[in-house]
């Protein structure tokens, strides 16, 4: 009987690890990373996952071993023990050190992605001169590109719903805003998530390194239609981007003959 229970318990770490190993093959793992800082974030995720996995395996094997060794029908008599002060100190200190290690190891990446002082300063788009404003509202996304004057908030701004077109291999800064409640900008492929708060203008930056169409979703429950709130992040080459902007502008100044 004790063999059976020990084996059953041993199955937990074995099957647990197996699902993680197989996940990638069944496309149950992360979507492909396409942003410049996504690799670091995946690295941090993996670091924490390996730490957790190590702890998980050690504790599960120990559990199975104890069930086997100290089963009720083992020969001999049990011994009363009050516990071990030294052991408790060790198992408090190790997680504390591990937590500190995690906290320090993520600082650089966090600062790189989120600190405004680390935003791109030299490229075409900066915090002061963003590529666009992205407005979240119940329940869609609207992008507001500057018009010919290059400034957002004037009469010649261009506006499109749903689709946010950005150039590839470029540091892109945009302003995230909300019209009504808290929303959250999330593009899984960019490993980028940022809440949009009503009344705030939040600068966000990323650098997409692969052309493609990625899902833009709202990651903060924003009302009954939250599930409907989807958008599209379209990353195109720089030439294609100029073409798309010209198209948006032509549609904006259409006299109604070509497009509805």
């Amino acid at each position: 009987m004790r063999y059976l229970f020990a084996l059953l318990l041993l199955l937990v770490p074995i099957l647990g690890v197996w699902t993680f190993v197989e996940a990638d093959r069944w496309q149950l793992w992360f979507p492909e990373n396409v942003s410049s800082f996504g690799g670091e974030i995946d690295g941090l995720f993996n670091l924490i996952m390996y730490m957790v996995a190590f702890t998980f395996i050690v504790t599960e094997v120990a559990l199975a071993w104890f069930v086997f060794k100290y089963s009720a029908n083992r020969p001999g008599k049990g011994v009363f023990t009050h516990g071990s002060h030294k052991l408790e100190m060790i198992w408090t200190a190790i997680p504390a050190v591990a937590l500190l290690f995690i906290a320090f190891s993520q600082m650089e990446t966090w600062a790189k992605v989120k600190f405004e002082s680390n935003f791109p300063k030299t490229g075409e788009y900066t915090k002061e001169k963003p590529i666009a404003e992205l407005w979240a509202s119940q329940f869609d996304w609207r992008v507001r590109y500057p018009g010919d004057d290059g400034v957002i908030g004037t009469v010649d701004d261009l506006e499109r719903s749903y689709e946010f077109v950005v150039p590839v291999d470029t540091d892109v800064v945009f302003h995230l805003r909300s019209r009504d409640v808290i929303h959250s900008f999330f593009v899984p492929e960019f490993r980028l998530k940022q809440d949009a708060l009503p009344g705030h203008t939040i600068p966000v930056w990323f650098r997409a390194e692969k052309e493609g169409i990625y899902d833009l979703v709202c990651a903060e429950l924003c009302g009954w239609g939250h599930y409907k709130m989807s958008g599209r992040m379209t990353v195109v080459s720089k030439e294609e981007f100029a073409k798309r902007m010209a198209e948006i502008k032509a549609e904006w100044y259409s006299n109604g003959k070509e497009q509805g």
Binding site: Q138, F139, D140, S161, Y162, G225, K228, M229, S230, R232
Partner: peptide, 8 residues
């Protein structure tokens, strides 16, 4: 309004 874009 509450009418979103359905371009998806």
């Amino acid at each position: 309004t509450s009418m979103p874009s359905f371009r998806r």
